[in-house]
Simulated scan of single mutants.
Amino acid sequence: MADDHTHVQDFFSARAADWDTRFPDDGPAYAAAVGDLGLRPGGAVLDAGCGTGRALPALRTAVGPAGTVIGADLTPAMLAEALRAGRGTAGALLLADAERLPLRAGSLDAVFAAGLLSHLPHPDDGLSELARVVRPGGRLALFHPVGRAALAARHGRVLTDDDLRAEARLTPLLADTGWRLVTYTDEDSLFLALAVRTG
């Protein structure tokens, strides 16, 4: 497992410094996806795999000053960039593994996860852990500012049916890990899967 995590840390550490400048126009898509989570003032939300914290300001706006916003990431360099960008004022930043979060069971209303799924060494463990920390009826947003086909093209890959984010694969994966898929959007300009915590 350590090797898997080291690979993820190496990948993002090498890209942290210019991450935001590589994707400067994603802000509105992040804000819209956060809006779809249905957060309420005073709520508690985790940005799992928060990276440079681009979702944190929108999450703070959604839960208001009385709410709790936590941004967790495995890569210190990404969290350092979040601080440098001033996003640490929108939420608490936590160096943590999404597969082993130092949070109480059922303590959150929602989880926002941008691009996280494809970087989890063990997606079933990661989604189960996210379910553990969310109350029954709470929500999960799996988000990416471009759809699966556009992302595959960006990386020079062919989109295949075994892609983890394909609806036919994602639906049972979520069901097996404590979630029920509610809506699924996969367009050129947006990937957003919204799920509800079961049980």
Rank of each mutant, 00 (worst) to 15 (best):
D4C: 02
T6D: 09
T6L: 12
H7M: 02
V8R: 04
D10N: 14
R15T: 03
R15L: 10
F23Y: 15
F23W: 15
F23I: 10
P24M: 06
P24R: 09
A29N: 00
Y30F: 15
Y30I: 06
A31W: 05
A32S: 04
G35S: 01
D36G: 02
R40L: 07
G42R: 09
A44G: 08
A44Y: 01
A44K: 03
V45A: 02
L46A: 10
G49L: 09
G49S: 10
C50D: 05
L59R: 07
L59N: 09
L59I: 08
T61A: 07
A62T: 00
V63F: 03
A66H: 11
A66P: 00
I70N: 06
G71H: 10
A72M: 10
T75F: 07
A77G: 04
E81S: 13
L83M: 12
A85P: 06
G86T: 06
R87A: 09
G88I: 06
G88M: 05
A92E: 15
L93N: 05
L93C: 09
L94M: 14
L95I: 10
L95C: 13
A98E: 15
E99L: 02
R100A: 15
L103I: 11
R104Y: 12
A105G: 12
A110D: 01
V111Q: 10
V111T: 13
V111R: 10
F112W: 14
A113H: 08
A114I: 00
L116T: 01
S118V: 11
S118N: 10
H119N: 14
L120H: 10
H122I: 04
P123Q: 13
P123C: 13
L127T: 04
E129D: 14
E129C: 12
A131N: 12
V133N: 09
V134F: 12
G138F: 00
R139L: 05
R139S: 08
A141W: 04
F143W: 01
P145M: 06
G147D: 12
G147F: 05
G147K: 07
G147N: 12
R148S: 04
A149T: 08
A150R: 04
L151W: 13
L151K: 11
L151V: 06
A153Q: 15
R154W: 05
G156A: 07
R157F: 05
V158W: 01
L159F: 02
D161E: 11
D162G: 13
L164H: 00
R165Y: 13
A166M: 08
E167R: 13
A168G: 14
A168H: 15
L170R: 04
L173N: 02
L174S: 06
A175E: 15
D176R: 13
D176I: 05
D176Q: 11
G178A: 13
W179R: 15
V182F: 02
V182Q: 14
Y184N: 12
Y184I: 08
D186V: 09
D188N: 09
D188I: 03
S189Y: 04
L194W: 09
L194G: 05
L194D: 03
V196T: 15
T198Q: 15
